[in-house]
């Protein structure tokens, strides 16, 4: 039996990797992937607690999160395609026209 803390550590590690990826990478695809990473870190947490508490509610949530993540990925990819088409680039540091 793997203890709960292992799952939590794994989830925290994954989440941290996601945050760092979002904050530091230039490529918008990698940022998107990092976001997925963060979402799945949360999913692991949910499943772990669901198992630990012997309640299925958490797992139902996970299914919702996966659905939302899929939809979000579709929208995000569409935006990225438009960005790439209009600006000829997928590097976020080149998109700073909204600066003050």
């Amino acid at each position: 039996m793997i203890p709960l803390s292992w799952y939590i550590v794994l989830s925290a590690a994954l989440f941290t990797i996601g945050v760092v990826g979002v904050l530091t990478r230039r490529n918008v695809f990698i940022i998107l992937m990092s976001i997925e990473l963060m979402l799945n870190a949360a999913n692991i947490n949910l499943v772990a607690f669901s198992h630990y508490l012997q309640s299925l509610t958490g797992q139902v949530f996970v299914i919702f999160v996966i659905t939302v993540a899929a939809a979000e990925a579709a929208v995000a990819l569409a935006i990225i395609i438009l960005l790439a088409r209009n600006r000829g680039s997928v590097y976020v540091d080149e998109f700073n026209i909204m600066k003050g």
Partner: peptide, 14 residues
């Protein structure tokens, strides 16, 4: 104040 607004999304997120 306007100097805070760099236009880099990642800075905002940070």
């Amino acid at each position: 104040g306007r100097k805070l607004q760099t236009g880099y999304v990642q800075q905002y997120a940070f």
